[in-house]
C-alpha cells in the first residue's frame, strides 16, 4: 500500500487564532468509499479544502498517490458543497460540465466533438441530459449538485472528493448520486466524502474517518464506526435515539460530569 490515494500527516488548519483541524493524520484506502464524519464544526469540510489547497494550512504534509499534490492534480476531482458559486453566472449546464475537461483540452485547445460527447455522457450518468442548455441558476438545489458531480466525472479522476454531496438534496438526487459513486467504485476509483447523515453510513460507505478537530478513529465501518468512537467524537451532541438505532441493545455508560470552571 505504498501509494495510498491520499495520505495526510500532521495537518493543522486554522481560521484565526484557534485551530479548526488539529494535527490530523489520515490514510485513504484505494478503491474504497470513505466517509469523513464528525459533529458540526469538527473541521470536516476544512480538512478537504486544506488537502486541496483551497484554504492555507498551518502545518502538515499531503501526498496524493505517493507524490506531491501539485503533480497529481489531474487525478483528483472535487465536488464542493452547494452555494459556493454565483448561481446567476452566465453559464449553461453543459458549459459547467465542460469545465471538467479543462486539463484534457488544455489552455488553448478546442473542444472537439469527442469532448462534447464525453461531457454529454457525464451529464447522462447523473440523469440531467434534458437540462443541458439551461442556465445553471434555473435548476433546483439537487439538480445543481448533480451537475457538479457530472463536472467531476468529466475530469476522469482516480480520487473523488465530495463535500457533503447529500446535504439538502431531494431523494431522487441522493439516489442518483449514490448510484454514480458506487459505479465509480466498481471502476476501481477511490471516493472520499464528507458526510453528515450517520444513519446511511453503513449502507453507503466502506470506511470511515471520524474527526472532531483532531482525528478520533479511522478504519472500516466495522472497526471505526462504533458507539465508542462516535461517543468520543460527538460527545453529548449525539441523540440517544440515533445511537440506539445504530447500535441496538448496548448499555450506555454513566460518568460524572465535569462542570467547566468559570473563565
Amino acid at each position: 500500500m505504498g501509494d495510498a490515494p491520499l495520505r495526510v500527516r500532521g495537518l493543522t488548519v486554522s481560521y484565526g487564532a484557534s485551530p479548526a483541524v488539529f494535527s490530523a493524520d489520515m490514510t485513504v484506502a484505494p478503491g474504497a468509499m470513505t466517509a469523513i464524519i464528525g459533529p458540526n464544526g469538527a473541521g470536516k469540510s476544512t480538512l478537504l479544502k486544506a488537502v486541496l489547497g483551497i484554504v492555507p494550512r498551518v502545518s502538515g504534509q499531503i501526498e496524493v498517490f505517493g507524490a506531491a499534490l501539485e503533480r497529481q492534480r489531474a487525478r483528483i476531482a472535487y465536488v464542493p458543497q452547494r452555494a459556493s458559486v454565483d448561481w446567476d453566472f452566465p453559464t449553461r449546464v453543459i458549459d459547467v460540465v465542460e469545465m471538467g475537461l479543462y486539463r484534457r483540452v488544455g489552455l488553448i485547445g478546442r473542444l472537439t466533438r469527442q469532448h462534447r460527447a464525453t461531457a454529454g455522457d457525464c451529464l447522462a450518468r447523473v440523469g440531467m441530459s434534458d437540462f443541458a442548455t439551461r442556465q445553471i441558476g434555473q435548476l433546483s438545489g439537487g439538480q445543481q449538485q448533480r451537475v457538479f458531480l457530472a463536472r467531476a466525472l468529466a475530469q476522469g479522476a482516480d480520487l473523488y472528493m465530495l463535500d457533503e454531496p447529500f446535504a439538502g438534496v431531494d431523494a431522487a438526487t441522493e439516489k442518483a448520486i449514490i448510484d454514480v459513486l458506487k459505479s465509480l467504485k466498481d471502476e476501481g476509483r477511490t471516493i472520499l466524502a464528507v458526510h453528515h447523515d450517520l444513519s446511511t453510513v453503513p449502507d453507503y460507505f466502506d470506511r470511515v474517518f471520524v474527526i472532531n478537530k483532531s482525528p478520533v478513529a479511522e478504519g472500516t465501518v466495522a472497526q471505526a464506526f462504533t458507539q465508542d468512537t462516535l461517543q468520543q467524537a460527538y460527545g453529548g451532541r449525539l441523540a440517544t435515539g440515533l445511537l440506539d438505532q445504530l447500535f441496538p441493545a448496548t448499555p450506555a455508560a454513566a460518568a460524572p460530569a465535569f462542570p467547566a470552571r468559570p473563565s
Partner: peptide
C-alpha cells in the same frame, strides 16, 4: 473528557492547544 456526553460545554473548549488544567 470529550467522549463523555455530560461534558459537552467543556469539550467545546478543546482546540488541541490549551492544556486541560486551564479549565479544570
Amino acid at each position: 473528557l470529550r467522549s463523555r456526553s455530560e461534558n459537552a460545554a467543556l469539550a467545546a473548549r478543546y482546540d488541541g492547544l490549551t492544556p486541560v488544567e486551564t479549565w479544570l
